[in-house]
Design a protein around this nucleic acid. Structure first.
Lengths: 202, 202, 202, 202
DNA sequence: GATGAATGAGCGTTCATTCAT
DNA sequence: AATGAATGAACGCTCATTCAT
């Protein structure tokens, strides 16, 4: 059961993590310093160390929470009762919307960090990977259902899920690199069409 | 005409760039310091500054050369006389081979840096983007030919090229994240199949 | 109103500036490094940067304060009600006393730096020059009064002030170069006599 | 007797010292590096170390020679047969001319370095001081003659020589600080008048 | 608990000096 | 003798972390 202190602590932690993400969004990972986070959170520098033992832990927690928010928002927006194809279609559209609304934090995340800053075997890295893998498995399960329903060809759903997820990220990245000329609304459809139909002439 | 000194200088530059890429591979971009490069190249710190005016220039040159090597190797392995589909197939297979052989350096590059470390407008960043864009345009031109030949559906070849390139990178990334259970040789085929046919049931 | 923190900060700043002047005195401007100042002030290197953004700012502030102390001490010791000649005489005597008590810092300042270390147009250099020029103008105004009172010949008071100031400095420099055999008390009188009467036989 | 090698060596040394003074003139003492001197002398960096064991020795020799040139030019321009007052007058005018023609090197010397860069007891510092003292003694001897001739008041000629020399330097410094509005030709007369007659009303 | 002044290891960079050619 | 590539100590500065208040 949560004591009053724990609740207060929870608030502080949340504030710190949000401030951290804002700083990441504004300055990138490189430019994220403890000083800046403290200033953004309107808290003394030392205070951060009451809640996080190192900067890496703070960053990790901020990313993890941000990623979890994105992932769970995806899951919540999912409607399992839709026909498989429409469900997938909605998922893609939702994910586009989510990543675009979160854009600022995710921009830095997808362009700069990914999952590399942690050594293989590092607990925090594993945790991060875990969240991502859970997300992929959720996608894979949806794809798996569609395959079993005969709507999709029998392919490796894990592989397909990874590719689908990456294609979404990729088209956002493409936009951030200044290589997209189409309006952003068209991206979800373009990704979906390519994912579903490929490029081969019928 | 190259004098003897220029040749020696060329060797040193190459050694330094290779050492730099090894350090990037081992420590990531964040962890790449002049000290470490010097140690890796078995050279005093100051020596590096005889060949590169700043650390950024060194990193840029190392990345640029690594990227160019990858790109030009792709172009050289291309056989324009193949039928469109086989040509694309070969391109994908080649790129897989190339990116896997370069694996260590490219890992850090594709996972960590992308093209972000340079401010927009930075000459070096633009140069880097240019190389990448050239590569994409080459892919796009091959896809464009296939479209005009009626082998591929009429789609935006730029978009398709970006996605294809990214799918290759993604499946390597997937492997680096420990999410692949299939043998690496199967990746190229899997990417190709998805790219060409999509996942939709016929 | 000064808070407690501001007072403490003021102490630190003063300690740092004094330490800086001691280091300048001991090692000259060339030999003044942040490390040495930190050691002299018994403070970690980084601490200095909490109070001064760059080394140049630290040096500038230390010199400026040292110069201002000298200049304002001169002004305060001035007695405007004395007859012109006695007033000038007192001014010279006072300046000798002041410059000799500050000797160590001023030695380096007058022998090494002058006002050169700052580019023309540099705000800090201008500030330094300003203090010096103000001092000269104060001297010039006193000389100007004496001229209008008919006690001094009509000459350019700006020029005379510069020369008088420099003669004082010069005779201290002469002492530092080991060229003086007379007791230091005699210097003020010697300078005054030369300044007032010149060397020409009557 | 000078061997051929010694003559060649003499040429090189002279070239190096001249190059050094040009670099000092252009970049100040701070900005004088071995690299720049080597480039200015069109010689490899290592070559300098065949002739001078350290940078300090090079600088010292360059200053010493530059100072000697100035001093001996003063002595050569002297006409001992002139009446004392005219002789002094000519000396001052000549020194102004010399220091103004050498202006570039001397500017840095008089504004930046003086004699301080060498520890007391340092052989090179003493040598420098010696040249300067010799010059002062020459001036003092001329003043002494004038005193004995009854043209100047009986004063300490050493002191007077130092002051006269410094007043010349000071008025050049004043000009370099941007504090002079009169034409440069007037400086010599102004210094002379002040030195001879002082500022006191008759 | 909260603060923020203090710390010092570590960074990128410069440059006097050395030494193999 | 002459070269200039190589060296590495030293510099100014940053910033994650600590700790007295």
């Amino acid at each position: 059961m949560a004591t009053k202190e724990e609740i207060v602590k929870g608030f502080r932690v949340r504030e710190l993590l949000e401030a951290t993400r804002r700083v990441i969004a504004r300055n990138g990972f490189q430019g994220t310093t403890i000083d800046r986070v403290a200033e953004e959170a309107k808290v003394a520098k030392g205070t951060i160390y009451l809640y996080f033992p190192t900067k890496e832990d703070l960053l990790h927690a901020a990313i993890l929470e941000g990623l979890r928010a994105m992932v769970s928002e995806t899951a919540e927006a999912d409607n399992p009762e839709l026909p498989p194809l429409e469900r997938i279609s909605e998922l893609v559209r939702n994910q586009f919307r989510i990543q675009s609304s979160n854009e600022h934090f995710l921009k830095a995340f997808f362009l700069e960090s990914s999952f590399v800053n942690f050594e293989p075997g590092d607990v925090r890295g594993e945790e991060l990977r875990r969240v991502y893998i859970d997300h992929l498995e959720f996608l894979a399960s949806v794809l798996g259902l569609a395959i079993r329903a005969g709507v999709l060809r029998p392919t490796d759903p894990q592989f397909a899920a990874f590719m689908l997820s990456d294609m979404i990220t990729a088209s956002i990245r493409r936009r951030l690199l200044g290589l997209a000329s189409t309006p952003i609304e068209a991206d979800a459809d373009a990704v979906l069409e390519m994912f579903l139909k490929g490029v081969l002439a019928p």
